[in-house]
């Protein structure tokens, strides 16, 4: 309880945090042609996980994705933006090649490597079933356009656009 309150107070100062106060892990922002997402977290890992949920929310109702199957993801990239890009792209590839929708994202710590950064995660979901999972829009690609990663102690907010 105390931790929860502390978290909210900590997050109450800047733009986007109204969403956190109301418990939102991500939100869809205005963009004319495509999907513009803001995702939040206490850590970079949490924000990346919430970005992943938002990505599946574009395609279906992520609440309706049960966590039955598990896959592993291990990716490397030279900076944080490239890591976010590669992370979300990897999830898209997993969806398109395995037909699995995901809703559980357990990211172990993002580590530094000699060439940049490494992310390891367990991702959980279930096969796409059009009778169970309402169809929204397919995603073509992740983009760097307007991508932002804003890190403050205990509060990370990221923004990105998906091409649909």
């Amino acid at each position: 309880m105390h931790i929860g309150i502390y978290w909210l107070l900590l997050l109450a100062s800047e733009d986007g945090e109204l969403c956190l106060k109301s418990g939102k892990r991500f939100e869809f922002l205005e963009h004319t042609a495509d999907v513009y997402i803001a995702a939040y977290g206490r850590t970079l890992e949490e924000a990346f996980a919430n970005a992943a949920i938002a990505t599946f929310e574009v395609m279906t109702d992520s609440d309706k994705i049960a966590q039955i199957v598990e896959d592993s993801v291990e990716i490397e990239a030279y900076d944080e933006k490239a890591l976010l890009y590669t992370w979300l792209e990897n999830l898209l590839i997993n969806f398109e090649t395995k037909g699995t929708l995901y809703s559980g994202f357990e990211i172990s710590k993002i580590e530094k490597t000699p060439d940049g950064l490494r992310l390891k995660a367990k991702i959980r979901g279930e096969p796409f079933n059009p009778d169970k999972h309402p169809q929204k829009v397919g995603i073509k690609a992740v983009t760097y356009h307007r991508m932002e990663i804003d890190k403050k102690p205990g509060k990370v907010s990221i923004r990105f656009i998906l091409d649909i």
Partner: peptide
């Protein structure tokens, strides 16, 4: 060419 955002 789009005029309104998808959200709107």
């Amino acid at each position: 060419g789009r005029m309104l955002s998808r959200a709107a």
